[in-house]
Write a protein that binds this DNA or RNA. Structure first.
Lengths: 177, 177
DNA sequence: TTTTAATCTAATGTG
DNA sequence: CACATTAGATTAAT
Protein backbone atom coordinates (compact mmCIF):
# COMPACT_ATOMS: atom_id res chain seq x y z
CA UNK A 1 0.00 0.00 0.00
CA UNK A 2 1.49 3.24 -1.09
CA UNK A 3 0.08 5.16 1.74
CA UNK A 4 3.01 7.33 2.52
CA UNK A 5 1.87 10.14 0.30
CA UNK A 6 -1.08 11.01 2.37
CA UNK A 7 0.55 12.53 5.38
CA UNK A 8 2.72 15.16 3.79
CA UNK A 9 0.14 17.85 3.66
CA UNK A 10 -0.74 17.59 7.27
CA UNK A 11 2.84 17.84 8.29
CA UNK A 12 3.03 21.35 6.98
CA UNK A 13 0.93 22.68 9.77
CA UNK A 14 2.70 20.84 12.50
CA UNK A 15 6.07 22.00 11.31
CA UNK A 16 5.82 25.61 12.36
CA UNK A 17 3.43 25.37 15.20
CA UNK A 18 4.01 28.41 17.35
CA UNK A 19 3.39 31.99 16.43
CA UNK A 20 2.99 34.28 19.34
CA UNK A 21 0.91 37.35 18.82
CA UNK A 22 3.99 39.36 19.51
CA UNK A 23 5.80 37.75 16.65
CA UNK A 24 2.87 38.22 14.35
CA UNK A 25 2.52 41.87 15.16
CA UNK A 26 6.22 42.35 14.96
CA UNK A 27 6.21 40.74 11.59
CA UNK A 28 3.42 42.94 10.47
CA UNK A 29 4.67 46.25 11.76
CA UNK A 30 8.39 46.01 11.42
CA UNK A 31 8.68 44.44 8.05
CA UNK A 32 5.54 45.12 6.13
CA UNK A 33 7.20 44.32 2.86
CA UNK A 34 8.66 41.07 3.95
CA UNK A 35 5.46 39.44 4.91
CA UNK A 36 5.79 36.74 2.29
CA UNK A 37 7.66 34.40 4.53
CA UNK A 38 7.33 30.97 3.07
CA UNK A 39 4.85 29.76 5.59
CA UNK A 40 2.21 27.48 4.27
CA UNK A 41 -1.06 29.17 5.05
CA UNK A 42 -3.87 27.12 6.29
CA UNK A 43 -6.56 27.36 3.66
CA UNK A 44 -7.92 23.86 3.30
CA UNK A 45 -10.79 24.73 1.05
CA UNK A 46 -8.48 26.15 -1.58
CA UNK A 47 -7.08 22.71 -2.13
CA UNK A 48 -10.32 21.00 -2.90
CA UNK A 49 -10.40 19.06 -6.12
CA UNK A 50 -13.07 20.31 -8.49
CA UNK A 51 -14.26 16.79 -8.94
CA UNK A 52 -15.22 16.50 -5.35
CA UNK A 53 -16.99 19.79 -5.21
CA UNK A 54 -20.66 19.05 -5.24
CA UNK A 55 -22.66 21.49 -7.26
CA UNK A 56 -25.03 23.07 -4.82
CA UNK A 57 -27.48 20.81 -3.11
CA UNK A 58 -28.28 23.52 -0.65
CA UNK A 59 -31.86 22.51 -0.37
CA UNK A 60 -32.45 18.90 0.22
CA UNK A 61 -35.71 18.13 -1.41
CA UNK A 62 -37.73 15.75 0.68
CA UNK A 63 -39.10 13.85 -2.25
CA UNK A 64 -35.68 12.85 -3.38
CA UNK A 65 -34.09 10.46 -0.98
CA UNK A 66 -31.70 9.36 -3.68
CA UNK A 67 -29.62 12.44 -3.07
CA UNK A 68 -27.89 10.52 -0.39
CA UNK A 69 -24.22 11.18 -0.34
CA UNK A 70 -22.02 8.35 0.61
CA UNK A 71 -19.05 8.99 2.81
CA UNK A 72 -15.81 8.84 0.96
CA UNK A 73 -12.90 6.78 2.07
CA UNK A 74 -10.63 9.74 1.65
CA UNK A 75 -11.82 10.99 4.94
CA UNK A 76 -10.76 7.85 6.64
CA UNK A 77 -7.38 8.02 5.01
CA UNK A 78 -6.93 11.53 6.21
CA UNK A 79 -7.58 10.37 9.69
CA UNK A 80 -4.03 9.22 9.85
CA UNK A 81 -3.15 10.35 13.31
CA UNK A 82 0.46 9.81 14.07
CA UNK A 83 1.17 12.34 16.76
CA UNK A 84 -1.26 15.14 16.61
CA UNK A 85 -3.07 17.07 19.30
CA UNK A 86 -3.40 20.04 16.98
CA UNK A 87 -6.80 21.43 16.28
CA UNK A 88 -5.60 22.06 12.79
CA UNK A 89 -5.90 18.47 11.80
CA UNK A 90 -9.43 18.24 13.06
CA UNK A 91 -10.62 21.21 11.09
CA UNK A 92 -8.92 19.88 8.02
CA UNK A 93 -11.08 16.81 8.09
CA UNK A 94 -14.12 18.89 8.66
CA UNK A 95 -13.66 20.71 5.44
CA UNK A 96 -13.31 17.72 3.26
CA UNK A 97 -16.31 15.64 2.50
CA UNK A 98 -18.72 17.57 4.60
CA UNK A 99 -22.31 16.67 3.97
CA UNK A 100 -24.33 19.43 2.34
CA UNK A 101 -26.40 21.18 4.90
CA UNK A 102 -29.91 19.85 4.97
CA UNK A 103 -32.64 22.43 4.84
CA UNK A 104 -35.67 21.04 6.57
CA UNK A 105 -38.98 22.30 5.39
CA UNK A 106 -41.24 24.08 7.81
CA UNK A 107 -43.64 21.18 7.83
CA UNK A 108 -40.83 18.80 8.61
CA UNK A 109 -39.75 21.01 11.47
CA UNK A 110 -43.30 21.14 12.68
CA UNK A 111 -43.57 17.40 12.89
CA UNK A 112 -40.16 17.01 14.49
CA UNK A 113 -40.95 19.63 17.10
CA UNK A 114 -44.23 17.97 17.86
CA UNK A 115 -42.57 14.67 18.46
CA UNK A 116 -39.83 16.34 20.45
CA UNK A 117 -42.42 17.82 22.77
CA UNK A 118 -43.56 14.37 23.71
CA UNK A 119 -40.31 12.50 23.56
CA UNK A 120 -36.93 14.04 23.06
CA UNK A 121 -35.25 10.65 22.95
CA UNK A 122 -37.10 8.77 20.22
CA UNK A 123 -35.97 5.20 19.72
CA UNK A 124 -34.87 3.76 16.46
CA UNK A 125 -38.39 2.67 15.59
CA UNK A 126 -39.86 6.11 15.88
CA UNK A 127 -36.94 7.65 14.07
CA UNK A 128 -37.38 5.23 11.21
CA UNK A 129 -41.04 5.99 10.96
CA UNK A 130 -40.34 9.69 10.99
CA UNK A 131 -37.76 9.24 8.30
CA UNK A 132 -40.22 7.43 6.11
CA UNK A 133 -42.95 9.95 6.66
CA UNK A 134 -40.79 13.01 6.16
CA UNK A 135 -38.72 11.56 3.34
CA UNK A 136 -35.50 12.04 5.26
CA UNK A 137 -32.71 9.72 6.24
CA UNK A 138 -32.89 8.32 9.69
CA UNK A 139 -29.42 9.76 10.21
CA UNK A 140 -30.74 13.26 9.79
CA UNK A 141 -33.53 12.61 12.24
CA UNK A 142 -31.10 11.43 14.83
CA UNK A 143 -28.82 14.40 14.34
CA UNK A 144 -31.77 16.71 14.50
CA UNK A 145 -32.83 15.35 17.85
CA UNK A 146 -29.31 15.58 19.18
CA UNK A 147 -29.05 19.21 18.14
CA UNK A 148 -32.50 19.92 19.45
CA UNK A 149 -31.65 18.49 22.84
CA UNK A 150 -28.49 20.55 22.93
CA UNK A 151 -30.47 23.65 22.13
CA UNK A 152 -32.95 22.98 24.88
CA UNK A 153 -30.23 22.35 27.37
CA UNK A 154 -28.41 25.49 26.37
CA UNK A 155 -31.47 27.63 26.75
CA UNK A 156 -32.11 26.11 30.12
CA UNK A 157 -28.61 26.88 31.30
CA UNK A 158 -28.89 30.42 30.09
CA UNK A 159 -32.21 31.12 31.71
CA UNK A 160 -30.85 29.72 34.92
CA UNK A 161 -27.89 32.01 34.64
CA UNK A 162 -30.17 34.97 34.20
CA UNK A 163 -32.17 33.94 37.24
CA UNK A 164 -29.08 33.77 39.39
CA UNK A 165 -27.94 37.09 38.08
CA UNK A 166 -31.26 38.65 38.84
CA UNK A 167 -31.25 37.17 42.31
CA UNK A 168 -27.95 38.87 42.97
CA UNK A 169 -29.23 42.14 41.64
CA UNK A 170 -32.28 41.97 43.88
CA UNK A 171 -30.10 41.20 46.83
CA UNK A 172 -28.02 44.23 46.10
CA UNK A 173 -31.08 46.44 45.78
CA UNK A 174 -32.25 45.27 49.16
CA UNK A 175 -28.95 46.12 50.74
CA UNK A 176 -29.12 49.66 49.48
CA UNK A 177 -32.45 50.33 51.12
CA UNK B 1 -49.18 5.21 46.65
CA UNK B 2 -47.80 8.59 47.43
CA UNK B 3 -44.26 7.46 46.86
CA UNK B 4 -44.89 6.36 43.34
CA UNK B 5 -45.36 9.88 42.11
CA UNK B 6 -41.68 10.67 42.27
CA UNK B 7 -40.42 8.22 39.75
CA UNK B 8 -42.66 9.08 36.88
CA UNK B 9 -40.66 12.03 35.75
CA UNK B 10 -37.43 10.16 35.49
CA UNK B 11 -39.03 7.39 33.56
CA UNK B 12 -40.33 9.63 30.86
CA UNK B 13 -37.76 8.73 28.29
CA UNK B 14 -37.65 5.02 28.59
CA UNK B 15 -41.38 4.85 28.65
CA UNK B 16 -43.02 2.58 26.15
CA UNK B 17 -44.13 4.21 22.94
CA UNK B 18 -47.41 5.32 24.34
CA UNK B 19 -47.48 8.07 21.78
CA UNK B 20 -47.56 7.02 18.21
CA UNK B 21 -46.55 9.55 15.63
CA UNK B 22 -50.11 9.56 14.46
CA UNK B 23 -51.35 10.61 17.83
CA UNK B 24 -48.65 13.21 18.10
CA UNK B 25 -49.51 14.65 14.76
CA UNK B 26 -53.13 14.60 15.70
CA UNK B 27 -52.23 16.45 18.82
CA UNK B 28 -50.32 18.92 16.82
CA UNK B 29 -53.15 19.67 14.49
CA UNK B 30 -55.75 19.95 17.15
CA UNK B 31 -53.76 22.19 19.44
CA UNK B 32 -51.38 24.27 17.43
CA UNK B 33 -50.68 26.50 20.43
CA UNK B 34 -48.67 23.78 22.02
CA UNK B 35 -46.08 24.04 19.35
CA UNK B 36 -44.53 27.22 20.58
CA UNK B 37 -41.69 26.11 22.73
CA UNK B 38 -40.51 29.60 23.42
CA UNK B 39 -37.18 29.18 25.06
CA UNK B 40 -35.54 31.99 26.90
CA UNK B 41 -32.62 33.26 24.92
CA UNK B 42 -29.51 34.75 26.40
CA UNK B 43 -29.42 38.41 25.56
CA UNK B 44 -27.47 40.10 28.31
CA UNK B 45 -27.22 43.38 26.51
CA UNK B 46 -30.96 43.77 26.54
CA UNK B 47 -30.89 44.29 30.26
CA UNK B 48 -30.65 48.02 30.52
CA UNK B 49 -29.32 48.33 34.02
CA UNK B 50 -28.51 51.82 35.23
CA UNK B 51 -25.12 50.48 36.19
CA UNK B 52 -23.65 50.13 32.76
CA UNK B 53 -20.86 47.69 32.44
CA UNK B 54 -19.48 49.41 29.38
CA UNK B 55 -19.23 53.04 28.59
CA UNK B 56 -20.11 52.60 24.95
CA UNK B 57 -21.87 49.44 23.94
CA UNK B 58 -21.92 50.41 20.31
CA UNK B 59 -18.54 51.85 19.57
CA UNK B 60 -15.46 50.39 21.12
CA UNK B 61 -12.80 52.67 22.36
CA UNK B 62 -9.55 52.78 20.49
CA UNK B 63 -7.34 50.36 22.23
CA UNK B 64 -4.04 51.83 23.30
CA UNK B 65 -3.61 55.53 23.83
CA UNK B 66 0.02 54.88 24.60
CA UNK B 67 1.44 53.21 21.55
CA UNK B 68 -0.60 53.67 18.48
CA UNK B 69 -0.87 55.53 15.27
CA UNK B 70 -3.11 58.49 15.81
CA UNK B 71 -6.05 57.30 13.85
CA UNK B 72 -8.52 58.60 16.35
CA UNK B 73 -9.90 61.34 14.21
CA UNK B 74 -12.75 59.48 12.66
CA UNK B 75 -13.40 57.57 15.80
CA UNK B 76 -13.92 60.70 17.79
CA UNK B 77 -16.40 61.88 15.26
CA UNK B 78 -18.19 58.63 15.60
CA UNK B 79 -18.35 58.87 19.34
CA UNK B 80 -19.91 62.28 19.27
CA UNK B 81 -22.32 61.48 16.56
CA UNK B 82 -23.65 58.34 18.12
CA UNK B 83 -24.77 59.97 21.31
CA UNK B 84 -27.97 61.45 20.00
CA UNK B 85 -29.38 58.27 18.59
CA UNK B 86 -27.92 55.81 21.02
CA UNK B 87 -30.89 55.42 23.30
CA UNK B 88 -33.15 54.93 20.35
CA UNK B 89 -30.86 52.29 18.95
CA UNK B 90 -30.64 50.52 22.23
CA UNK B 91 -34.39 50.35 22.46
CA UNK B 92 -34.56 49.08 18.94
CA UNK B 93 -32.00 46.42 19.66
CA UNK B 94 -33.83 45.43 22.76
CA UNK B 95 -36.95 45.01 20.68
CA UNK B 96 -35.19 42.98 18.07
CA UNK B 97 -33.19 40.99 20.53
CA UNK B 98 -29.94 41.28 18.72
CA UNK B 99 -26.58 42.35 19.99
CA UNK B 100 -25.65 45.86 19.00
CA UNK B 101 -23.33 45.71 16.10
CA UNK B 102 -19.75 46.00 17.23
CA UNK B 103 -17.63 48.51 15.38
CA UNK B 104 -14.04 47.41 15.38
CA UNK B 105 -11.47 50.14 15.22
CA UNK B 106 -9.01 50.16 12.36
CA UNK B 107 -6.18 49.20 14.66
CA UNK B 108 -8.17 46.28 15.99
CA UNK B 109 -8.85 45.13 12.46
CA UNK B 110 -5.20 45.44 11.63
CA UNK B 111 -4.19 43.14 14.43
CA UNK B 112 -6.92 40.65 13.69
CA UNK B 113 -5.98 40.53 10.03
CA UNK B 114 -2.34 40.02 10.90
CA UNK B 115 -3.16 37.08 13.07
CA UNK B 116 -5.56 35.73 10.49
CA UNK B 117 -2.82 35.73 7.91
CA UNK B 118 -0.84 33.31 10.00
CA UNK B 119 -3.59 31.30 11.55
CA UNK B 120 -7.22 31.49 10.62
CA UNK B 121 -8.17 29.04 13.34
CA UNK B 122 -6.81 30.52 16.54
CA UNK B 123 -7.34 28.40 19.60
CA UNK B 124 -8.92 29.60 22.76
CA UNK B 125 -5.60 30.73 24.18
CA UNK B 126 -4.79 33.02 21.30
CA UNK B 127 -8.33 34.32 21.23
CA UNK B 128 -8.15 35.18 24.89
CA UNK B 129 -4.89 36.98 24.46
CA UNK B 130 -6.26 38.92 21.55
CA UNK B 131 -9.32 39.83 23.57
CA UNK B 132 -7.19 41.16 26.36
CA UNK B 133 -4.96 43.12 24.04
CA UNK B 134 -7.73 44.62 21.97
CA UNK B 135 -10.15 45.19 24.83
CA UNK B 136 -12.79 43.04 23.26
CA UNK B 137 -14.73 40.05 24.47
CA UNK B 138 -13.40 36.72 23.41
CA UNK B 139 -16.81 36.09 21.92
CA UNK B 140 -16.32 38.92 19.48
CA UNK B 141 -12.92 37.58 18.48
CA UNK B 142 -14.34 34.18 17.75
CA UNK B 143 -17.19 35.59 15.71
CA UNK B 144 -14.80 37.78 13.82
CA UNK B 145 -12.69 34.81 12.79
CA UNK B 146 -15.74 32.85 11.79
CA UNK B 147 -16.93 35.64 9.58
CA UNK B 148 -13.46 36.22 8.23
CA UNK B 149 -13.11 32.60 7.20
CA UNK B 150 -16.49 32.72 5.54
CA UNK B 151 -15.48 35.82 3.66
CA UNK B 152 -12.28 34.28 2.40
CA UNK B 153 -14.06 31.16 1.36
CA UNK B 154 -16.70 33.13 -0.45
CA UNK B 155 -14.17 35.14 -2.37
CA UNK B 156 -12.37 31.98 -3.29
CA UNK B 157 -15.56 30.42 -4.58
CA UNK B 158 -16.29 33.49 -6.62
CA UNK B 159 -12.88 33.64 -8.21
CA UNK B 160 -13.12 29.97 -9.04
CA UNK B 161 -16.47 30.56 -10.62
CA UNK B 162 -15.02 33.33 -12.70
CA UNK B 163 -12.16 31.11 -13.78
CA UNK B 164 -14.50 28.38 -14.90
CA UNK B 165 -16.62 30.92 -16.69
CA UNK B 166 -13.60 32.31 -18.46
CA UNK B 167 -12.43 28.85 -19.39
CA UNK B 168 -15.74 28.21 -21.07
CA UNK B 169 -15.57 31.50 -22.87
CA UNK B 170 -12.09 30.73 -24.15
CA UNK B 171 -13.21 27.32 -25.28
CA UNK B 172 -16.00 28.88 -27.23
CA UNK B 173 -13.70 31.39 -28.85
CA UNK B 174 -11.46 28.61 -29.96
CA UNK B 175 -14.31 26.74 -31.50
CA UNK B 176 -15.29 29.71 -33.56
CA UNK B 177 -11.87 30.05 -35.12
C1' DT C 1 -26.28 48.77 -2.56
C1' DT C 2 -22.49 46.61 -0.40
C1' DT C 3 -20.11 44.85 3.46
C1' DT C 4 -19.99 42.44 7.55
C1' DA C 5 -21.34 41.61 12.65
C1' DA C 6 -24.69 38.64 14.63
C1' DT C 7 -27.68 34.71 14.80
C1' DC C 8 -29.39 30.05 14.11
C1' DT C 9 -28.62 25.42 13.31
C1' DA C 10 -26.99 21.22 10.53
C1' DA C 11 -22.88 18.61 10.56
C1' DT C 12 -18.58 16.65 12.58
C1' DG C 13 -15.30 14.69 15.88
C1' DT C 14 -14.24 13.20 20.61
C1' DG C 15 -14.86 10.73 24.72
C1' DC D 1 -25.31 10.29 23.43
C1' DA D 2 -23.38 14.82 25.36
C1' DC D 3 -20.45 18.24 24.24
C1' DA D 4 -17.67 21.55 21.78
C1' DT D 5 -16.87 23.48 17.32
C1' DT D 6 -17.32 24.53 12.66
C1' DA D 7 -19.62 25.70 8.27
C1' DG D 8 -23.58 27.26 5.76
C1' DA D 9 -27.29 30.35 5.44
C1' DT D 10 -29.63 34.32 6.70
C1' DT D 11 -30.65 38.76 9.02
C1' DA D 12 -29.78 43.32 9.94
C1' DA D 13 -26.81 47.37 10.72
C1' DT D 14 -23.48 50.39 8.33
Amino acid sequence: MAASTVSCQIRLFDAKPVFTIDSILGLNLDRPGLRNVSVKLYRPWTELEPTQQRSHPIVNRPSDPSSEITRTEDEQKLNCKQHSTESYRRTLNWYIGRRPRTAFSSTQIEVLESVFLINSYPGIDIREELAQRLHLDEDRIQIWFQNRRAKLKRSHRESQFLMVKKAFADLKDKEEE
